[in-house]
Amino acid sequence: MVLSGAVTSEATPTSADQPASTAASQATSASPVVNSQATSQAVASQQPVQSAVSAATPSVQPVDSAVAAQPAVSVAPSVDSSVNASTTPSVDSSTPVVTPDAADQVIDSDNNNVDNQQGKVQTVDKIHFDQILKDKYQIDVNHLDAKSALMLASLFHIFANEAQLSADVNGNIAVGILNSNVDFGTRGDSVHLTQGDIYYIQQLNTGLQSGSFRNELFNHVVFGQDVNVEIVNGQVHVNGHHMVNLKPEEVFKDAAGSNYIDFPTVFSRLLKASNFYASQEESAGVIKNFDDQNNRFVDVSNAVPKDNVIYVNIPFEYLTHPQPIKIFGLSSKVH
């Protein structure tokens, strides 16, 4: 199984002595979810033994893609996760990612601060065409979608068809339907603090808490067509609630007839990739111990990669527990 919060496609801890970890938070989510910090039904969760992946050197993605590989720059560091993969073996896919031409990008470039003050909300097409992410925030979505084991989900702390947030969520989200009575967004001085948060909320069943979207560096927020977003006197209001942390230039809506993220397609690809990972034998040389619930660990220092990938089989029961699983042996200095 592939589980992750916000995970970059290529970043790893800076030394072999610095563990990566995966932990469950108090947030919960309905529907299939790719998220290590929310108690949820995860991708391919029906499988009792799952495969976590750790890439040693660049290879190819498990889902075919027409996206050319290039250095990825992401807002999301490698955080609490049982997975940290830059690349994975090739698996056929009926839904390849296609890099858009510049002429196909649909972003309302005529908007400016005056428009925002007067209530004009910008629109944006699919996330693959979102030139703002690349030009302003140096995030190459197409590269991540082609090379990360978690594809688009690697950009988000919670990635779900539907999410019920009832406890503080210290991260960003992409959801088809959001039910939330709490604040959310990355904050604080954690070593895992991202450089900024990207959000996609297609539908809202409840009013948002005014303190949401709390990353102080930047927020890039896209709402679905049915969400009422207004700019009143330079302030952002969502379904009638003033969002104190959002600036008008940070807020967008789906372009007519388009969804920023096609959740059914992404989950179909993730399930196919997850089944592929789960079918692989554990790599030779992997050391793991789950006896002490407060000191569970996996050590891949001496693991032997298969096609430049290290596979670790972890019983699903341990992935659902709130205690962390530390992963030793990941280092940017070694392959």
Rank of each mutant, 00 (worst) to 15 (best):
V309W: 02
A153H: 02
V63K: 08
P264C: 09
Q225H: 03
R214K: 13
S40M: 03
L155K: 09
H241W: 07
I327M: 15
E317G: 08
K120W: 02
F263C: 06
Q203T: 06
G224E: 02
R187A: 14
A273Y: 07
K288E: 11
P324L: 10
A102R: 00
D262A: 10
G234P: 14
Y260D: 14
A303G: 08
N239A: 11
P324W: 02
I177M: 12
K136S: 10
N161L: 10
S4P: 01
V232A: 08
L152I: 12
N275Y: 01
V106D: 14
S93I: 04
T194E: 02
L152A: 11
V67R: 02
N239R: 00
S29K: 07
V114T: 00
G188K: 05
V175K: 10
L144P: 09
S25G: 12
L319S: 04
G240S: 03
Q18E: 12
A303R: 02
Q323V: 11
Y200W: 11
K253R: 03
A174Q: 09
H220Q: 05
E230D: 12
N215D: 11
V244F: 13
A68D: 00
T99C: 00
N308K: 09
Q37G: 15
Q117D: 12
V73R: 07
Q202E: 06
I158K: 08
Q203C: 08
S40W: 06
V53W: 06
Y260F: 15
V63F: 12
V33R: 10
N308A: 11
D197T: 14
S180P: 04
L133S: 12
P58W: 10
S65M: 01
H242W: 00
Y277P: 01
V75I: 04
K136G: 06
Q209I: 13
